[in-house]
Write a protein that binds this DNA or RNA. Structure first.
Length: 426
RNA sequence: GGAGAGGUGGCCGAGCGGCUGAAGGCAGCUGCCUGCUAAGCAGUUGUACGAGGAAUCGUACCCCGGGUUCGAAUCCCGGCCUCUCCGCCA
């Protein structure tokens, strides 16, 4: 959520920022409403001040057993006027909130202005596209022929987009998750969290999923809970409505969760196999920092995610998103895209974002500064470290052998207990 | 799901419809004092919105939302949450 006071002080900065994200049209209405609100609040405050003073006088008169009827009659009218003004304020504030909650964050100054993914910039390559001297199978053929991913039966059970891993495939998936959690907790000192997978409205609002992205989430009507699209939601909300001590910062959490996405509006895109699914596994990293250190933390977070792919020796590139391709809440975002040699494509496996104080405002996450004891909003960041389905695509396609089997990357072997997937089909 | 208890400041905890932004304690900060440590004495310490260059001032906030009243932490109604007991259950 943006700060109305800041918008009032620097309207042109926000006009520019919002237009870079393609949503500046509500700004003037917002400023008008804000002005109205302030003048009515001030009028109401004056009347309340009057009432408070006279009310004391009434109390004094009554104490002395004198008549206060005259003043009581006056205050009855003042009270009605106050109620009227308060109602007007409430009405305006509702309109104001309706606008503020759908305004996206504005991009950081280092972010390129652009309209869509075509204008993103590749900022880094790691490793190289591997070469093969035999015809490659894509991950679907591999999963099917080895019997380690069963899409046919899972669609019977749940529908399209709900992958089911079997035998060595299931073990591999679980090993990847454990490997990543251990990596982050042991190498980079993240604290492990195992969060709830269903969250309430306040939590979904806090990280920015609500109100704009409601239709992208699965919802349970009976209890009004949302299935989480990412562990970012519960983990960021751990500190909702809290004031943290500055010396507790930075806070670094990592969490495994199932992720559930309706993917409404993306029908027909990437529908094959594991590239776009309704349920998947992901290990997420979340950080809470001071405003001064969030951009350093952002670079570190990117590196923490990259190191997972480096440990697995998988070729990838890093993309810096342009303003128009960034998500609602982000001020700056890197995507990590992994190379899948049979599909001949880079797949996004991680999104590393700095939200600055945008989520902190929504979720009311603050910290008390050591220097002057004042409170301010923290900065929140998160990055996937990483999502498994597309990692699985790259892994199966990269490590396949000419016999149609799959080698297990060395870093995972102590988790899987095997070094070659020979398949479940005998 | 049924029955009961309760939600007050960083924490614990008191609170008669007006003198309560809120007693008292703990913790923190400042000063004094004591050779050190511990203790002691005095003072001080919430958040948000608005006005002003600033010191400061006004308003709101005792889980949330309504209501009664000249006036609500305190009374009434609705909701949420926590705890205890019973039931059900992996």
């Amino acid at each position: 959520m943006l700060d109305i006071k800041q918008i009032r002080l620097e309207p042109e900065k926000y006009r520019k920022g919002l237009s870079a994200k393609g949503s500046e049209e509500k700004l003037d209405e917002l400023l008008t409403l804000d002005g109205e609100r302030r003048s009515i609040v001030s009028e109401a405050d004056q009347l309340k001040g009057l009432r408070n003073r006279v009310t004391e006088e009434i109390a004094a008169l009554k104490k002395n057993k004198q008549s206060a009827d005259e003043k009581i009659r006056e205050m009855r009218q003042v009270g009605e006027k106050i109620k009227e003004l308060d109602n007007k304020v409430k009405e305006i504030e509702e309109k104001l909130m309706d606008i503020v909650v759908i305004l996206p964050n504005i991009p950081h100054e280092s972010v390129k202005i652009g309209r869509s993914a075509e204008e993103n910039e590749v900022v880094k390559f790691w490793g190289e596209k591997p070469a093969y001297d035999f015809p490659l199978k894509d991950h679907l053929e591999i999963g099917d022929s080895l019997g380690i991913i069963d899409f046919h039966r899972s669609s019977k059970i749940s529908g399209a987009g709900f992958p089911m891993y079997v035998g060595a495939g299931a073990k591999l998936e679980r090993s990847i998750i454990n490997f990543m959690l251990d990596f982050h907790t042991q190498k980079h000192d993240y604290k492990e969290i195992f969060p709830p997978f269903l969250v309430n409205r306040d939590s979904a609002f806090g990280t920015g999923q609500l109100p704009k992205l409601e239709e992208d989430m699965y919802h349970t009507d009976e209890d009004d809970l949302f299935l989480i699209p990412t562990a970012e939601v519960p983990v960021t909300n751990i500190h909702r409505d809290e004031i943290l001590q500055e010396n507790k910062l930075p806070i670094k959490y990592t969490a495994y969760s199932g992720c559930f996405r309706r993917e409404a509006g993306s029908y027909g895109k990437d529908t094959r196999g594991l590239s776009r699914v309704h349920q998947f596994n992901k290990v997420e990293m979340v950080r809470f920092t001071t405003p001064e250190s969030s951009y350093i933390a952002h670079e570190e977070l990117l590196q923490d995610a990259e190191e997972i792919l480096q440990a697995l020796k998988l070729h990838y590139r890093v993309v810096s998103l342009c303003s128009g391709d960034m998500s609602f809440a982000a001020a700056k975002c890197y995507d990590i895209e992994i190379w899948a040699p049979a599909s001949q494509k880079y797949f996004e496996v991680s999104s590393v974002s700095n939200f600055e104080d945008f989520q902190a405002r929504r979720a009311n996450i603050r910290y008390r500064r050591n220097s002057d004891g004042k409170v301010g909003y923290v900065h929140t960041l998160n990055g996937s470290g990483v999502a498994t389905p597309r990692l699985m695509i790259a892994l199966l396609e990269t490590y396949q052998t000419d016999e149609g089997k799959v080698l297990v990357p060395e870093a995972l072997q102590s988790y899987t207990g095997f070094s070659l997937i020979k398949g479940e089909n005998g």
